[in-house]
């Protein structure tokens, strides 16, 4: 075999991979459009449905936090407590919300089993494509909402700040990777007893929301209590995201390498699990 033969084989192999990836991407985008269209058809809000839902939840959270700040007698535009020094309250809450809810939405959807099953009728579509498409929709909705609200905040406060855009993008993508990995792992959990799944779901929702730093900053927590929350990799994502916006924001006990490790481990484990158990996801759900 000559060098040119080897080069030809290599080129063919690379072409096949690129073609396969291109087709995979087209399938994922098609499913995400499919899901948005069917959601829009079933709602009076139409296409805005996918944005309005997370927005109302985000506004509710911000409302709760502002009310608490007012009750404490803090400045109504500040984050309350020592966080005031670094962030406007809306920006502070938003940074927490867009990371935590991205993770939560993907995980909860997966734990409930694949609600979107009809596309599996076409043999080219696999359960992983559906999960990725749903994650893409959540990512797009939350990213659009975050950018829009951040734009509004910057407009009114006239203080644009994004110290480390590279870190912000990396943290966001690492959270997406971790969410997909976690979602893919728990989708198999959804195959177990449905009551057990409901209990885990409820517990997980509370644990994630109250330990992920939506409402608080890690540096506000006393050092001896931090280990109780810093086990949560989403908290690392949230705090690093805030740090990427304002590099003066203190992040004690928060580490990027921990987030990277959790994301890679979670994704690798879930892909192995998926590879060996894919057929389980083609069976009907009880609920």
């Amino acid at each position: 075999m000559t060098f040119f033969d080897l080069r030809f084989i290599l080129m063919m192999f690379i072409n096949r991979i690129i073609k396969g990836l291109r087709r995979q991407w087209m399938i994922i985008v098609a499913i995400s459009d499919y899901d948005r269209n069917r959601q829009a058809a079933g709602s009076s809000l139409g296409s805005w449905e996918s944005l309005i839902n997370p927005m109302q939840m985000m506004l509710f959270f911000i409302g709760v936090r502002v009310t608490l700040s007012l009750l404490r007698g803090a400045n109504k535009f500040a984050a309350g407590g020592s966080t005031d020094i670094y962030f406007n309250i809306v920006a502070f809450m938003l940074t927490g919300f867009c990371i935590v809810f991205l993770f939560r939405n993907v995980a909860i959807k997966s734990l409930s089993g694949l609600k979107l099953k009809a596309p599996l009728y076409y043999s080219r579509i696999k359960p992983l494509d559906i999960l990725l498409a749903l994650s893409l929709n959540d990512m797009r909705a939350l990213a659009t909402l975050s950018l829009a609200i951040l734009g509004v905040v910057y407009y009114f406060t006239w203080s644009f700040q994004l110290d480390s855009p590279g870190l912000a993008i990396s943290v966001y993508l690492l959270t997406v990777m971790m969410a997909i990995g976690f979602g893919l792992s728990v989708v198999f959990l959804g195959r177990l007893n449905k009551w057990l799944v409901k209990i885990i779901k409820r517990l997980m929702q509370r644990v994630i929301i109250f330990t992920s730093g939506i409402f608080f900053a890690t540096f506000e927590i006393p050092a001896h209590l931090r280990p109780f929350i810093t086990w949560n990799p989403i908290l690392h994502g949230v705090e690093l995201f805030r740090y990427s916006i304002n590099n003066e924001y203190p992040i004690p006990d928060i580490s990027l390498s921990y987030l990277i490790l959790c994301s890679i481990l979670m994704l690798s484990f879930s892909l192995i699990l998926y590879r060996t158990n894919e057929s389980l996801l083609l069976v009907a759900n009880d609920d």
Partner: peptide, 10 residues
């Protein structure tokens, strides 16, 4: 293989 419309989880 039918779609479920339950969105209460979200």
């Amino acid at each position: 293989l039918t779609n479920s419309d339950s969105s209460s989880d979200q």
